[in-house]
């Protein structure tokens, strides 16, 4: 008889807290929208500064939806391709540095320098060199996203226990076997931790970099500024929401991959 109650309790503890937070956020949103002076002093009753949730889609006519869709495609494709390249570049660098101490000492300071330099400083230089092309967008995204992958790969590769290395030495394993059967699997929890951070950064890179890519069809970043300049608060919020959802989507995909590939055998 106690079993069903436990299940109900478990479900409650799983779903009720997020729902409570959701209700609080929506209530806070409404409170903010209706507490701002003259927010609804417009001719048609729409919000001038912050639209309440039920007015979010006011002004989303066909032309606006088309603009948002085009911008979403540009930012999403930049983030996806940029993230893939960041994985390749980050892991390659991490592995290379784990193999060679001299390579690590040569590259590490530069990687740190790139990481700590604000991307808004680098982006205009990249555009000057590469033009306002898709390649330049990718470069910005890769630069902002690759470092956590590289550093976590290096850390993971170096963290393999000496005992396990001894086992591979005893079995006379080749360098390739040691890399693919010992070091990479052992480093995968750390690599996936880096991937989760980089996933968010790739989306940020694609959208922040977009502010500087001022030619051709705008991505989400520039479209938000256009809506801001025209005080079209509804479309502006929808665009921001899509940017957040893309970031969330990246995070979820990486988490699922981690669960599939690492969780079955890894216990932190």
């Amino acid at each position: 008889m106690k079993q069903p109650n436990r299940r109900i309790d478990a479900r409650r503890s799983k779903y009720v807290p997020p729902l409570v937070v959701l209700v609080v956020v929506v209530a806070g949103w409404y409170a903010l929208a209706y507490s701002l002076d003259n927010n609804f002093a417009s001719g048609d009753g729409s919000a001038l500064i912050i639209p309440p949730p039920h007015q979010l889609f006011v002004g989303l006519n066909e032309a606006t939806v088309d603009r948002i869709a085009a911008a979403t495609w540009i930012s999403l494709s930049t983030a996806v391709v940029g993230f893939m390249l960041a994985i390749v570049a980050g892991m390659a660098l991490g592995i290379a540095m784990s193999v060679s101490r001299s390579l690590e000492s040569a590259l590490w300071p530069w990687l740190i320098a790139i990481q700590v330099t604000p991307i808004i400083v680098l982006t205009p230089i990249i555009i000057r060199v590469a033009g306002a092309s898709f390649g330049a967008r990718l470069t910005v995204t890769v630069l902002i996203a690759f470092f956590p992958i590289a550093s976590n790969t290096l850390f993971g590769m170096r963290s393999v226990s000496a005992a396990l290395h001894d086992v591979f030495t005893l079995t006379q394993a080749s360098r390739w076997q040691r890399l693919t059967r010992l070091q990479l699997p052992a480093a995968s929890p750390a690599i996936f931790a880096g991937l989760r951070v980089s996933a968010g950064l790739a989306v940020i890179g694609a959208i922040v970099g977009d502010f500087f890519f001022t030619r051709g069809t705008p991505g989400l970043g520039r479209l938000i500024t256009f809506f801001f300049q025209d005080t079209r608060s509804g479309p502006m919020f929808v665009t921001a929401l899509i940017a957040a959802l893309i970031g969330l989507g990246f995070f979820v995909v990486v988490s699922l991959l981690r669960r599939l590939l690492v969780s079955p055998w890894h216990r932190p």
Partner: peptide
């Protein structure tokens, strides 16, 4: 937009194109 957010403003400089584009929300 400021003209509707701040009721104290009597006149604003508004170009014809802006007046058209904001006519629904801020006539």
């Amino acid at each position: 937009t400021e003209m509707f957010l701040d009721g104290g403003i009597m006149f604003g400089y508004v170009g014809t194109d802006v007046a058209l584009s904001r006519y629904n929300e801020a006539p």
